[in-house]
Write a protein that binds this DNA or RNA. Structure first.
Lengths: 183, 183
DNA sequence: CCCAGCATGTAACGTGTTACATGATTAC
DNA sequence: GTAATCATGTAACACGTTACATGCTGGG
């Protein structure tokens, strides 16, 4: 059985865009899906072997003995559509920043300020990352059928980052007010 | 050893606001921290026993034999401050919605539309939940020292939900445009 | 020739969830 | 008395990460 249908979905999906090696798969997931998805090495290879055994992908031995390209079979495409249609399984939230801020009285106002400033900086960085991705998508016409969907995820990344920045600015101001009123 | 320093932090933090039973702790985490944190039963009780063994919390036998209230000791408060100061450990992203939209070509435009509409509805629900929490905080003056920090997390929840709604509206419009241009 | 990067895999570990099991108390 | 809820706990399982192990290939 596959490690999890989630990993199966990500792997089949990525290979459906373009056949590639397991190594390239990992890089694609990190670089392209990175802002909303992640898979580790330890998941990818067992999943590929499993998918191959079930006939959902085929391995085409490349020039080198240990360098093979994986491609999705018609069965694999069917399975992918099935997986994509399954209900989204909610991940239990675990936001370390919020947990620390919630107990901000124990942590101290200054440390809170630093955490929020770091979050703001990170959101700015993510915003630039979305720009990079958007440029990459625009510059590769061979993916024009996929591009409109990819733009949805990039837009989501942008909205999220912008919201984080607005919240951070508001929160830093609120902490300043706390300082003033406690004097 | 504690199951994880993350759970330890959440448990010590919650008990630092107010001593309570393990059962109440679980409800507090679900109802109050629920929009950014979660702990399961199987984590809470072992962690409480462990914290007790290490002298970070004390158990005060209540009226009933098997109903005891846990309170943070001075050592526990020190440990909590230490934990809160630790760097935030990033969770690998796993957004099932984004994964499905990214492979939207395989899933189909209509299914994408439904997913986005459901996300929008969920964000609306979360927005109302934030209103409820804000009212709850405003109505309980005994937590006035904590309230300013709690408001930061509520504000974050609001910003995130509002960003999701704006993104959803934009994305639904983009999908309509796709339909139009493909005709 | 050797190093960096490509490529594939496995085993151990930690963590967290789920399901199960049990019993006390309170409201009807 | 009995059902619902409060309360506490454990064991099995699933999942995912990390670290380890191995070898090929191309460029300097």
């Amino acid at each position: 059985m596959a490690r999890s249908s989630q990993t199966e979905m990500a792997v089949l999906g990525a290979l459906s865009v373009e056949p590639m090696t397991g190594y390239a798969l990992r890089e694609a997931i990190r670089d392209v899906l990175g802002h909303f998805w992640s898979e580790s090495f330890g998941q990818i290879y067992p999943t590929l072997n499993d998918l191959e055994a079930r006939g959902l992908v085929v391995r085409t031995g490349g020039a080198r003995a240990r360098s093979s390209t994986f491609a999705v079979t018609p069965d694999g495409a069917r399975r992918l559509r099935e997986l994509l249609s399954e209900p989204i399984q909610a991940v239990p939230p675990r936001n370390g920043l919020m947990l620390r801020l919630f107990f901000g009285r124990m942590l101290g106002v200054d440390a809170c300020r630093e955490l929020i400033a770091a979050t703001r900086a990170d959101a700015e960085r993510r915003l630039r990352e979305m720009d990079r991705l958007a440029a990459e998508v625009a510059g590769e016409p061979q993916y024009s059928d996929d591009a409109p969907f990819w733009r949805l995820t990039i837009s989501a990344g942008r909205h999220t980052a912008e919201a984080a920045i607005a919240w951070a600015d508001e929160s830093l101001a609120a902490l300043d007010d706390m300082d003033r009123s406690s004097r």
